[in-house]
């Protein structure tokens, strides 16, 4: 078979390219919403941890947060996904598997994002907090207006890294029979018995999405970095 014939067989015949398009759609939906869940969760956990370490308040919440970090970071995401599907969401059969995946990946990513946020907050000199408080701003306002903007600037590269990791980790969603990008490529292979082209296509699509993500992060980094110029 020539390359052209292989290409036609894998992507054109029976409209097989649609497996990839639909798969990509699901991958992006899962990644996008898991990212939101992860950032919100991670941000909250980081605030609890930092507030506890600095003021000694929120003891119980801090304990829960620590347990969450240990369990989530100590077990494989695939196991978490399957527990979410076969155990946690099992009683709710009507709920879309996409929602299950979003929750599993979001909760997983949240643990990593939490530590990234925490390191960012700790990287901001305590004098910034003191300066804000000495002007009469309360703890929350100082955190929000003064500490967070600087923390986020510092952690942007690490956060971008986590988003890329998250996108690629969703490739195990096929284990709970979600037809994501990886699974889409798999289906084509099982129809055509031709592994190379579908896998290559899947790899290239992941790579392109990562490149777009990276470009976005770089742009944001440049914008937030304008105060660094001397």
């Amino acid at each position: 078979m020539t390359f052209q014939e292989k290409f036609v067989l894998n992507f054109i015949e029976d409209n097989r390219w649609r497996y990839l398009v639909e798969g990509l759609q699901n991958t992006i939906i899962i990644t996008f919403f898991a990212l939101i869940v992860g950032v919100v969760l991670g941000f909250t956990i980081a605030l609890i941890r930092v507030t506890h370490d600095r003021t000694g308040k929120l003891k119980i919440l801090n304990g829960i947060a620590k347990l969450y970090l240990t369990v989530i970071r100590g077990t494989p995401v695939l196991i978490q996904l399957m527990i979410m599907y076969y155990v946690v969401f099992a009683p709710f059969a009507g709920i879309s598997k996409i929602v299950t995946a979003v929750m599993a990946f979001g909760i997983n990513s949240g643990a990593y994002v939490a530590e990234i946020f925490r390191s960012g907050i700790m990287s901001v000199d305590n004098g910034q907090m003191e300066a804000g408080r000495s002007l009469g701003l309360n703890y929350n306002k100082t955190m929000w207006l003064i500490v967070m903007p600087q923390a986020i600037k510092n952690i942007l590269p690490a956060l971008g890294n986590e988003f890329i990791t998250l996108l690629k980790e969703t490739s195990v969603a096929g284990y709970i029979a979600i037809q994501d990008l990886t699974k889409g490529g798999d289906i084509i292979r099982s129809r055509t018995y031709e592994p190379f082209l579908p896998l290559l296509a899947v790899a290239l699509i992941y790579l392109s999405v990562v490149l777009v993500l990276q470009a976005g992060v770089n742009k944001l980094e440049r914008r937030l970095g304008k105060s660094d110029r001397r």
Binding site: D125, G127, Q128, E130, A131, G132, R133, S134, L135, G136, L137, N138, I146, P149, Q150, K153, L224, S227, D228
Partner: peptide, 19 residues
């Protein structure tokens, strides 16, 4: 916070907000 609004403070390391 209300009290601090009436007490200005200047630090050794300035602590201007760099962003």
């Amino acid at each position: 916070d209300k009290v601090r609004q009436k007490m200005g403070m200047v630090f050794q390391h300035f602590n201007l907000f760099p962003h």
